[in-house]
Design a binder for these strands. Structure first.
Length: 293
DNA sequence: TTCTGCCCTTGGCA
DNA sequence: ATGCCAAGGGCAG
């Protein structure tokens, strides 16, 4: 079925910018369809001139369409957001260059685990970790010749235990994931409540979990808890901010940098950050290819 | 209280 | 081979 998208929408940039870690990308030789899992459904999707074409299982496509629109935040007034974040010249350039990079609305528990896994890790391996966890403890969902696994519940991972998670290759992050599973299972961490809570409170609650510091809390907040004012500061963003806005001087510490960024980029700085991160990463990749023998 | 240095798993790459 | 780095965070001092 086809969903018309009447707004700037870059499927590739949105799915491959390190927000969700549950998508298989179309290969160079492939057929341009992405395959992923959104909550309980396997989803196949590709861009079309008018929007996106998609198939789902087990939910029928007509029922799934609104959930897909929700996942891609098509309810955002994207032009208003772009107008706002264009206050910064460099972000404005990137918006021109990559129109339609969306902030996603990822399922909070899945998002939390993926970003605990992101600590001192690379994107490819985060994907592998998420996939391995799902295959081990999730449920199979199939469509045609494709089979994937849903992301396991907190109860599933609490029962699995730290050692089993460690065996799957999570390394030092295994106890963090296990403890987070217990916290959610026992009601000490209520992710639904965090959606309703103001940003600073939600971030504070997240940071009570071992393994979740300011950066990871901000990632969870912006990609799954409706906090577009969160601004995750990672190595790429810190590097970019330092080079562009604090040249030839010591880069302020992250807590100062965060306050500066939220003030400078405005209330939708989560979008600004995604543009800075994505633009910076693509530039790095292009440079790598340029320097390749 | 705040800052610094070091450690933590794993794997890919030079 | 061996070290460095990868969407960081905890901990000691």
């Amino acid at each position: 079925m086809e969903l018309t998208v009447d707004q700037p929408f870059d499927l590739t940039a949105s799915l491959e910018s390190g927000q969700s870690h549950r998508w298989d990308y179309p290969g160079e030789e492939g057929d341009s369809w992405y395959t992923g899992v959104i909550r309980g459904d396997l989803v196949r999707i590709r861009r079309t001139p008018l929007g996106v074409e998609f198939r789902t299982s087990p939910t029928v496509e007509s029922d799934f369409a609104p959930r897909l629109a929700n996942y891609f935040r098509l309810d955002d007034n994207i032009e208003a957001i772009y107008d706002d974040i264009r206050r910064d010249k460099r972000v404005a350039e990137m918006v021109e260059h990559y129109p339609g990079l969306r902030v996603l609305r990822v399922e909070p528990w899945e998002c939390l685990v993926s970003f605990i896994c992101s600590a001192n890790n690379n994107i490819q391996r985060i994907h592998n970790n998420m996939e391995t966890i799902s295959e081990a403890f999730g449920s199979a969902v199939s469509l045609d010749r494709y089979t994937r696994y849903t992301f396991p519940t907190p109860a599933d991972l609490a029962e699995a235990g730290e050692m089993e998670l460690r065996r799957l290759g999570l390394g030092f992050r295994a106890p963090y994931v296990h403890k987070a599973a217990l916290a959610v299972l026992e009601g000490r961490l209520d992710l639904d409540e965090l959606v309703r809570l103001p940003y600073p409170d939600a971030k504070g609650r997240l940071m009570e979990c071992p393994g979740i510091g300011p950066k990871i809390a901000d990632c969870i907040a912006v990609f799954s808890l409706e906090k577009l004012e969160a601004f995750p500061i990672d190595v790429w963003v810190r590097r970019a901010l330092g080079e562009w806005y604090f040249p030839n001087q010591k880069i302020p510490k992250d807590s100062v940098l965060l306050e500066w960024a939220q003030n400078h980029f405005g209330r939708y700085c989560g979008y600004s950050q995604q543009y800075l991160f994505h633009g910076r990463r693509l530039r790095g990749r292009a440079l790598d290819e340029t320097n390749a023998p």
